[in-house]
Design a binder for these strands. Structure first.
Lengths: 198, 198
DNA sequence: AGAGATACTAGACACTTGTCTTGATAAGGA
DNA sequence: TCCTTATCAAGACAAGTGTCTAGTATCTCT
């Protein structure tokens, strides 16, 4: 019936995600997209709706791969899950793509110039979700009697979210995930101090 | 002897600073620089060494105006100075240019794409300085007996720096300085918890 | 008033940007 | 094998980029 596509969509989007991660939206040209992914310029238009469409799909893919899996344990864990999350944030392999920081943070900053509404929706939605997850973990800690009943979950969650954002800036500045381990350990000691002695 | 320049350098650099702050380096074109500042395209080359030169001067000006003055009280104050610094971070007027976040954070993120060495020097130097200031304030707090002698100044300073970076991302995302007041107040309560009871 | 020196205006310049167009290519069904 | 259909490769395209180049304007000192 028709010619087969020369690329696998999932593989291509993932490659695009890494490219956007490394170079950002503005600095990554379509000719570069062509060479870094196997998406040709024609397919970029017809199958993805141009550069912007591919970017949006790459953002979604990023969330699926990186963020959602990292946040999941918070749903059913207390302080230890929270601590594990932050420890993981500063623990990276060699040649870890996360050394480039967090695509979401990078995008928040860059999109405040670009002001693409769909992109803004993705980032704000993600961070609302992240805050909710922190709050959930803290609620779980309350249920389990790890922290006091009147602990200010919501404020603490906002603080943790803000710190997590800061970690990604710090990582991007230093080009290394593990560069942030010192402050993460200090935060962990703070979280530990919330714990009720039994 | 010669024709007078049509612009005041200080005023022009300050206008450029605001423009770069709002739009970033890449997205601000030279024709836009011409209209937003009173610098003409010719002067941009001869007096500033092009767009990049002006950007570097704008960064320096930003540090003089915003950062250095905000950090100064930390040199000779303890926990209260630290608390005041963070409270100020989330306290803005209406139409505050700081609603755009922090030019330094924005630049850290954007320059990791651009990789201009001189720019990188400015940002890393600034954040090293900021960390040192936090450490100084904590040292002062130790001298004054506000916190224990074996308090981990260096780790705490890194944590505070990271949090401050996160605040600026959060502010940029929400377009408002005061949006970060909740988490700043929570951090203040944490700092208070470091204080020794007398 | 004239000369000399500097700054400005306006346009040209080569390059890159994202998107669109055109003709060739490749696949499966009749 | 031919036809239909979708995909691809390559180039065109207009608009935008930062920088450079003339010609003109404006200043101060003689």
């Amino acid at each position: 019936m028709a010619r087969a596509k020369s690329y696998d969509r999932e593989v291509a989007v993932e490659a695009a995600m890494l490219a956007f991660w490394r170079k950002g939206y503005g600095a990554l040209g379509v000719r570069e997209i062509e060479s870094e992914t196997s998406i040709n310029r024609f397919a970029l238009q017809t199958d993805f709706g141009g550069k912007q469409g591919l970017f949006l799909e790459a953002l979604q893919r990023y969330l699926e791969i990186s963020a959602d899996t990292a946040l999941k344990p918070l749903q059913s864990g207390g302080l230890n899950a929270l601590i594990a999350f932050f420890r993981q944030l500063a623990q990276g392999d060699a040649e870890d793509p996360r050394d480039e920081g967090c695509l979401m943070v990078n995008t928040v900053i860059e999109n405040s110039y670009l002001e693409i509404d769909e992109v803004r929706d993705v980032t704000t939605n993600h961070y609302n979700n992240m805050q909710r997850m922190f709050e959930l973990a803290l609620g779980w800690a309350q249920e389990a009697g790890e922290i006091t009943r009147d602990f200010e979950r919501s404020s603490a969650a906002k603080m943790l979210l803000t710190f997590a954002m800061g970690v990604e800036v710090y990582v991007r500045m230093n080009g290394s995930v593990s560069a942030a381990s010192t402050q993460v350990e200090f935060l962990v000691s703070q979280i530990e101090s919330w714990r009720l002695r039994t």
